[in-house]
Amino acid sequence: MHDEKERCRQLMMALLDGEISESDREELQILLNKFPDLKNESSEFSKLKEVTQKMKFKEPDPDVWQTYWYNIYNRMERGVAWLIFAIGAGILLAYGLYTMVLGLWQATDMPAVIKVGIFVVLLGVIMLLLSVAREKLFLWRHERYKEVQR
């Protein structure tokens, strides 16, 4: 009974959208006689269809299509540029930190307590950066396919 009603709903849609075969049309007639409540819905759907089939999207400015691929190309290139920039910045940052730590370590005129304080601050910053990098790597590994697979 439930399956027949669902089948009737499906065939009502097929009729509305002009995707019904002759045999399905006959089946629909039989089912509609069986379920008069669905028969009443048909007219509502027809009215709705009448309105929606008049609604189409406007063509945007031709410029949109002319620059469409150009914009994508720029974004693709920019992705590579950002990656190269990040690698370069990472190398410079690491070198800067190394020389700073070395300089501090070798400074004889600085009190030990300040040296220790600076090392602890630096250690905290490095740990924070590593934590963020680890989180990003985890998300990249686990969610990079989400747009494709869902």
Binding site: E6, R9, Q10, L11, M12, M13, A14, D17, E41, E44, F45, K47, L48, V51
Partner: peptide, 23 residues
Amino acid sequence: VGTVMSRLYYARKKLARELKDSL
């Protein structure tokens, strides 16, 4: 295809209900 038709039915039914006074 059957699922497509069923989903269309329920979506249109909801639309028709929303637009009951306008249609």
